[in-house]
């Protein structure tokens, strides 16, 4: 199935007007696109822009349908965009335990986005967090927190998942396994992934397409081998 994400005529109006001028298109049949660039290039800002986190006049489309506007042409609220985000600093809710964090979307999201319990169980098993479910957030290691963050985002059943260095706190062995799990789950659920990462091996293993960003501009794109 062809998957396309269009981000075009994009100018961030939030705090740095005019800095971002992007025309990004996720090429057909690329389930995972890597977003690379030096620190401060604007990678996280681009993810936030796609998610609708930042106010902008960008046009964001997935598979030809607009994510940023609803059918009547009004700005689509974040909760209706079908976009999930995994954050570099995980942003797990500190007042909830692991289970409540992981199940947050299941408990409180709109009913049509709620994941069935048996699928959630499978998701937890897939990402190896079953033994963590009774724990407090502050008792988790960095890698465990990132795994819980991934489960929490996927439990909201996004159509587009934005990952900002989602496995940076995981050791190398665990990282390979975790990314393989992420890849298999997103393929199974038909989720498009845009992932910020600095690891070239990860990019070659996972991504079919790469956007290379610098100073808010796309300076190169293509297959991993042609860009890296």
């Amino acid at each position: 199935m062809a998957q396309q994400v269009h981000v075009y005529q994009s100018k961030v109006c939030y705090s740095i007007p005019g800095r971002f001028e992007l025309d990004l298109e996720l090429k057909s049949n690329q389930r995972v696109t890597a977003l690379i660039g030096p620190s401060g290039a604007g990678k996280t800002t681009i993810l936030k822009l796609i998610a609708g986190w930042l106010e902008s006049n960008s046009t964001i489309a997935l598979n030809g349908s607009r994510l940023d506007l609803n059918r009547s042409g009004k700005v689509q609220p974040l909760r209706d965009r079908g976009v999930g985000m995994v954050f570099q600093d995980d942003l797990l809710f500190p007042h909830l335990d692991v289970l409540d964090n992981a199940q947050f979307a299941i408990k409180y999201a709109r009913s049509e986005r709620r994941m069935e319990p048996f699928v959630f169980d499978s998701l937890c098993e897939n990402f190896g967090i079953v033994h963590l479910l009774g724990r407090k957030i502050f008792n988790l290691s960095g890698g465990e927190r990132q795994r819980v963050g991934l489960v929490r985002a996927l439990a909201a059943r996004p159509q587009l998942l934005l990952c900002d260095e989602p496995v940076s706190a995981v050791d190398r062995v665990g990282r390979t396994k975790l990314l393989a799990n992420l890849q298999s789950w997103t393929e199974r659920e038909q989720i498009v992934v845009i992932m910020v990462t600095h690891d070239h091996d990860e990019i070659r293993r996972m991504a079919g397409h790469v956007w290379h960003i610098d100073a808010g501009r796309l300076i190169a794109e293509g297959s991993p081998d042609s860009v890296i």
Partner: peptide, 21 residues
């Protein structure tokens, strides 16, 4: 942190739920 509230919105929560939860 505004980021916690935005994260909840991205997971499909209404403004009311974001406030209460």
């Amino acid at each position: 942190d505004f980021a916690y509230e935005q994260a909840a919105r991205l997971m499909g929560c209404s403004e009311w739920t974001v406030f209460w939860r």
